[in-house]
Design a protein around this nucleic acid. Structure first.
Lengths: 195, 195
DNA sequence: GTGCCATACTTAACGCAGTTAGGTTAATGT
DNA sequence: ACATTAACCTAACTGCGTTAAGTATGGCAC
C-alpha cells in the first residue's frame, strides 16, 4: 500500500511543479507566448510528459486559472471575515477584486477575457462561469446581502446587484488597466455615500 | 496616369475582398479558428499573397476591427443626431453599445478582450484604445455632456463619467453575454431615473 | 534470483500554423 | 523588341499541439 501512496505523492508533486512552472511562464510571457514545448523545456521533461498529467493545453490552463481564482476567493473571504462595517467590507471586496485583476493580469485575462473556446476547447469544460468565477460573484453577493440586511443598501435582488457590481468591476478593470485616466483607489471623500 | 489609378483601384478591391472574407471567417469561426491559410483558401489565392496587402496577421485583424468599430461609431452618431431628448440619447447609445457587442461578439472580443499583444504584436500598433475604441468613448462623452448641459446629469468630469459608463457597459456586455441572468433591454419603469 | 507487468517517460512523427526567400508570369513604359 | 516592375506563386523554415509506438525501471509473485 505504501508504495502506491509514494507514487501518488510523486505524481502529485510533479503535477504541481508543472503547474507552477506553467504559471511562471504564463504570467511572464502572456497567453500568446505560452507553449507546451517551452513549458516542457522549463521543467526539463519531454513535451509529451505533460500529457500524462493534463489532457491538453486547455486543461492545463484551466487548472492554472482555477487555482488563481481560488486565491482571490480566499482573499475576499478573509476580507469579509475581518471587516466589521458591512459597507466597508463591500468596498474592500470591490477594491480587492480590481486590484487582483491588475496584479494578475495574465490570469485575469485567461479566466475572463479569453474567448471560451480557447480555455474550454472541449465541450462541457467552460470553467470560468461555473467554477471559481462564480464563487467570486457569490462572495460579492454575500457582501451585498450584508449591506442590505444592515439597511445600508436599498433592498433588492442581491445576486443581480452583485452581478451588476461585478460587471462594473470588470469594466473598471479594463479601463484602469489601459491608458485611460480612471484611477483605482480608496474612495474619495468628496461625495457622501450614494443611494 | 490612368493605368496607375486602375491598378490602385484593383489593389484596393482585392484588399477589401480579403478583409471581408476574413471578417466572414473570423465571425463564423472565432479568433482561435482563424488562420491565414484558411483565409487564403477562401479567397482562392496563395497564403503569401495576403502578405502583399497586410504586413501580418495582427495587422489584418486590426484593420478588420477598426472597420467594425467605425460602424459602431457611425451607429452611435446616427442615434445622437436622431434623438431629441438628451437622456434618451445617452440611454440609446448605451444600449446600442451593448447590443453591438452582443451582435458582433468576435469583433468585440478582438478589439476589447484579446490581450493587447495578440492584436498589437508589433510596437506602436495598439489600435484598440487609441483608434476607433476611443472614438466610441468620445461619442459617449458627447452624450454625457449633453445631459449635463441640460441639467439631466449632475455636472462633473464628462470624459471621466463617459469612461465609467463605458467600463460598466463593458462589464454588462461580459455578464450579459454569459450565462448569467442579467438582461439587456429598455429601461424598466419600476424605478424613477436615479441620480 | 528470475520472469512478469505496470508505470514513467521518451523519440519520432503528423498536420497545421505564420512567415520568408526566391522564382515565374504578364502587363507596362521605352 | 527589350527592360522593368508589379502581382502572384512554390517551396521551405520554424514552431506549434498532439498522438503512436517504443524503451527503461522498479516493484511483485514465484
Amino acid at each position: 500500500m505504501s508504495v502506491q501512496e509514494r507514487r501518488a505523492r510523486e505524481r502529485a508533486k510533479l503535477r504541481s511543479e508543472i503547474l507552477s512552472a506553467a504559471r511562471e511562464l504564463f504570467v511572464r510571457d502572456g497567453y500568446e507566448n505560452f507553449s507546451m514545448r517551452k513549458l516542457a523545456e522549463k521543467i526539463e521533461y519531454s513535451p509529451t510528459t505533460i500529457y500524462l498529467y493534463f489532457s491538453d493545453k486547455a486543461d492545463l490552463l484551466s487548472q492554472l486559472c482555477e487555482d488563481s481564482f481560488a486565491k482571490l476567493v480566499q482573499q475576499l473571504e478573509t476580507i469579509a471575515s475581518l471587516t466589521t462595517d458591512s459597507v466597508d467590507g463591500l468596498r474592500a471586496s470591490m477594491l480587492a477584486y480590481v486590484e487582483f485583476g491588475l496584479k494578475n493580469p495574465s490570469n485575469y485575462q485567461a479566466i475572463f477575457m479569453l474567448p471560451d473556446a480557447m480555455l474550454a476547447a472541449k465541450p462541457g469544460r467552460r470553467l470560468a462561469p461555473e467554477g471559481a468565477g462564480m464563487r467570486v460573484v457569490d462572495c460579492l453577493g454575500r457582501a451585498v446581502q450584508d449591506c442590505m440586511r444592515k439597511g445600508k443598501l436599498r433592498k433588492a435582488d442581491a445576486e443581480g446587484t452583485a452581478q451588476a457590481i461585478w460587471a462594473a468591476l470588470h469594466g473598471i478593470h479594463f479601463v484602469a488597466g489601459g491608458t485611460s485616466g480612471v484611477s483605482v483607489g480608496p474612495p474619495r471623500s468628496t461625495s457622501g455615500p450614494s443611494r
